[in-house]
Amino acid sequence: MIRTWLALRRAGVLGINERNLRLINDFNPRKLMRLVDDKTQTKSLANAAGIQTPELYGIIRAPSEMRKLEKLLDHPDGCVIKPANGSQGNGIQVLLGPMRGGWRRSNGQRALLEDLKFHVNNILSGMYSLAGLPDFAMIEYRVKFDDVFDPISFGGVPDIRIIVLRGIPFVAMVRLPTAESDGKANLHKGGVGVGLDLVTGRTKHGMQNGKITDIHPDTANPLANVSVPHWDDMLLMAAKAYDVTGLGYLGADIVLDKGKGPMLLELNARPGLAIQVANRMGIRPLMEAALVADTEGLDAEGRVALAKTLYRRFVPEPAPA
């Protein structure tokens, strides 16, 4: 055990204690964290800075506004109902489009207006919010996922997580849904995390449930060497997220729309550390470098360039496929 502990230390693996103390405590003042807990606020901040997000169709703030629901749901391509303060992807209802007097759910079943009203009511009562506090329901554009990840995902929503320190993107992964995770990309529900090379945006190794894997458990396709399209745009979005929120340590969750390109889904002020397993490396050396890097006078583009230089200093270019 002690030998493993020492080996991990040598490998530069960051623990929760250190993350809490050196990153979250030092860089994320509590009053800024509020900005990202509320997704409506994140969305408006991002839009103001020119970061693309799924279009917001409307918000239901109280049961008295329930009359608006039917009209808000009226989109031929479907839409998504989600709690503004939700966490872990709970309470998200994806509707693919109209279906015989109701709406088709992502699992193919039909949802009636009554069912959806009940769901919105639950959101409003705080069933899915962080502290059980009353919440809002957002109805927004349903992302049409780019098919680049189709060979290595099973249903649901693949998304890209980029961790940004002092505005410098420094480590990234893509999260893929599996049968086990029930279409969700959450790693602790059994989703697969695949490390991304920060410079090229190409996938490296994968992990599921804390164990290293090289193939997707359901499709059996190799996880490595998939190039993420619009990679530089995504890095730029993540870097800009720092400018609009002021959070020194944040995780940007980005999805890729087939037509509209990358969209910022949400920001996380306490991104986890499993990304180290997905990337098969400890992030402390990179973190230390990003902590002392000189960002004076650099805009988002400048910081992305800086990020790539820093990253290459520690991680060699992967051999081409």
Binding site: R10, M281, F314
Partner: peptide
């Protein structure tokens, strides 16, 4: 966490 990150024990700091 030693258990959680055990897979990384063999790697070095640079990845």
């Amino acid at each position: 966490e030693v258990w959680r990150f055990r897979e990384l024990a063999g790697t070095d700091g640079a990845g």
